[in-house]
């Protein structure tokens, strides 16, 4: 049995407002794409790392848990990225981990990451129309 109810005038007004807002959001929204990020060294071994979007604060990236390959995981980081510009620069920096693979210390800069891990950071400009799977390769200092 199907029950249909006729919307009241105020209900109809709310629906119209919601539809208008959705339309507005769709027209003016910033395109977002979820990127799959993996990080390896030149021996193709996963490297626990922090991924920072250009302009983003490193602390904010850490608080947002933008880490990859922690706890000996080889799974990629799935990171939604808003493309406010045609190209967004991504920075990847290795993080020091304990035996369990948990972060010992979060670096705040690329030189600090190199100092703590011996690995050089890497960065790459990414376009909305680029492939969403990214592999970063970090070199030894």
């Amino acid at each position: 049995m199907t029950v249909t109810t006729k919307p009241t005038r105020s209900g109809r007004r709310s629906l119209c407002a919601a539809a208008g807002l959705s339309l507005l959001a769709a027209c003016g929204s910033i395109p977002t794409r979820t990127l799959e990020i993996r990080v390896v060294d030149t021996n193709e071994q996963p490297v626990p790392s922090l991924v920072v979007i250009a302009g983003q604060d490193w602390n904010a990236a850490a608080q947002n848990k933008q880490f990859v390959h922690l706890n000996h995981s080889s799974e990629p980081l799935r990171l939604p990225v808003a493309f406010e510009r045609p190209e967004v620069n991504l920075v990847v920096a290795a993080v020091p981990v304990d035996d369990a693979g948990a972060v010992r210390q979060t670096p705040r800069t690329r030189p600090e990451s190199t100092e703590l891990t011996g690995l050089l950071g890497s960065d790459r400009p990414v376009r909305l129309t680029d492939p969403p799977r990214l592999l970063f390769v970090l070199q030894r200092r």
Partner: peptide
Amino acid sequence: FGVDERVCIQAIAPGHEPHFVM
């Protein structure tokens, strides 16, 4: 290429600098 406009090709070898092109 699928729906993408560029492809990423990388070459990696132990003890060597990796190569990367879009």
